[in-house]
């Protein structure tokens, strides 16, 4: 892996993903579970939990890179648009920094929805276990 390498993956916030997140973490805030409440507060429907996207990032780091000996050191994410149930998201990431002295790589990433709106973006820093 070298600076400038790019990676892409498609994710969908399916009913299974949404229900699984609630089952595991029990965040039933009405923004995420009550369509009427969400629309009354200016959204098109139930807003998916932002941290579902962090789960997708976990999958990206753990399963999509060409190496498996990885560990996440830091992760920063900004949520810029709401994500709704069944939204398909295009995830893209690029290596922006390589620190060979400490086997560490930095990525910038973006999630875009089908309208190509950026819904979330941020940085990930991973290490390679030796």
């Amino acid at each position: 892996m070298i600076e400038g390498d790019k990676f892409n993956h498609s994710f969908t916030v399916s009913q299974n993903v949404y229900s699984g997140f609630i089952d595991v973490f029990n965040d039933r805030n009405p923004l995420h579970t009550d369509s009427n409440w969400a629309t009354a507060n200016g959204f098109k429907g139930k807003v998916m939990h932002g941290n579902i996207l962090n789960g997708f990032i976990s999958f990206f780091v753990g399963e999509c890179l060409p190496v498996k000996n990885v560990i996440i050191y830091t992760q920063h994410i900004r949520f810029s648009q709401p994500v709704y149930l069944d939204d398909a998201l295009d995830f893209s990431a690029e290596i922006t920094g390589v620190f060979e002295s400490v086997n560490t790589y930095e990525f910038k990433f973006t999630f875009r929805n089908k309208e190509e709106k950026r819904v979330a973006y941020g940085t990930i820093q991973i290490g390679l276990l030796t």
């Binding site: 050191y73 920094g97 620190f99 060979e100 002295s101 400490v102 820093q125």
Partner: peptide, 24 residues
């Protein structure tokens, strides 16, 4: 040990230098 990694990364960025594992 984990913060040491963050320190080295921050130092390399700030001073715009690169070290190797043996050096650090």
């Amino acid at each position: 040990s984990l913060n040491h990694i963050q320190l080295v990364v921050a130092i390399e960025k700030h001073f715009k230098v690169k070290f190797n594992t043996t050096e650090i």
